[in-house]
């Protein structure tokens, strides 16, 4: 028996390992390719070698000497952080209400927020463009932050309300009995327990804002508010005969770093099973 079970599980292990390798390679090859390109010199750019023959940091030096890129990086960071913060705060409050309260129009609210998430954003670009121009929001930070909040809120509300539903209702009653105001109960009991949800949501929303290209390209016109994905598309070589591939790759690598940092920073806080031990039965 034991032998059979043993071979069976090694077989399974091998199958899973192979499958995992395939998935990881499939996902990582393009990323590694970009990384490799970013270290190549313009001459070896098209030699088709995965490992660069001649290593250079020139591409990185170049992009950080390009004021458009540095400015776009600042825009991206600022806009994504502000939009994430606002969306997460609003989303937390909305999700809490949806998970905990019964109020008239609850279903409608949930339905409408789903609708917003489903609506093709391309269809909204022209109206948004017109609206923002007449309101003076076009080509400003708020001009991007507002649509980002709008489109990430449904996501935030959905993720967060799932987390809130996991938190035993009784904890809040207990806090009330212990003398907490509703605000204190939320801050000191519910919020700490919902933290994994809040961080997960923050990561998702940040990635959404950070990667957005559609709004970034349509609702900006100068470097005053242009974010990196949009700025990248305006990259040209030093002269019109030069291929900008190397610098674009370097820029792509650079803008991936904040996301990785952001995810790693918050991931440590996403501990599963935070509510275990609260209630039994």
């Amino acid at each position: 028996m034991a032998v059979i079970a043993g071979t069976d599980s090694t077989g399974r292990k091998i199958r899973w390992t192979l499958l995992d390798i395939v998935v990881v390679v499939y996902a990582l090859v393009p990323v590694l390719w970009i990384l490799s390109l970013s270290f190549k010199t313009p001459e070896t750019l098209n030699d088709g070698n995965f490992i660069p023959r001649a290593w250079t940091l020139e591409n990185y030096r170049l992009i950080f000497q390009t004021p458009e890129f540095v400015r776009a990086l600042a825009n991206s960071i600022g806009i994504a952080l502000i939009a994430t913060a606002i969306a997460v705060v609003l989303g937390t409050m909305a999700a809490y209400a949806i998970a905990r309260l019964d109020f008239p129009g609850k279903r409608v609210l949930v339905g409408v927020s789903l609708l917003i998430a489903m609506f093709p954003q391309v269809a909204l670009v022209s109206p948004l463009f017109e609206i923002e121009r007449s309101l003076g929001l076009f080509n400003t930070w708020p001009g991007l932050i507002l649509p980002y909040i709008t489109f990430s809120l449904p996501l935030a509300i959905y993720t967060l309300s799932a987390f809130f539903r996991e938190i035993p209702w009784e904890l809040e009653k207990a806090a009330k009995m212990d003398g907490a105001t509703p605000g204190q109960a939320f801050r000191r009991v519910i919020a700490p327990l919902a933290a994994p949800g809040v961080f997960t949501t923050a990561i998702l929303v940040f990635i959404f804002c950070w990667n957005d290209f559609l709004f970034a390209i349509s609702l900006t016109s100068t470097e005053a508010s242009r974010t990196v994905p949009a700025a990248l598309s305006f990259f040209t070589g030093a002269s019109q005969f030069e291929d900008p591939t190397g610098t674009i790759s370097a820029a792509a690598v650079v803008i991936t770093i904040p996301i990785i940092v952001f995810v790693l920073f918050f991931q440590r806080r996403i501990v599963a099973g935070l509510t275990s031990g609260a209630v039994k039965g």
Binding site: K173, M177, V189, S276, K280, G281
Partner: peptide, 17 residues
């Protein structure tokens, strides 16, 4: 509840995890 000065023990204990 907080102004009634009453303490409660819940069936599920409701401890803060």
């Amino acid at each position: 509840p907080k102004d009634r000065d009453i303490a409660m023990v819940f069936q599920s204990y409701a401890l803060y995890p």
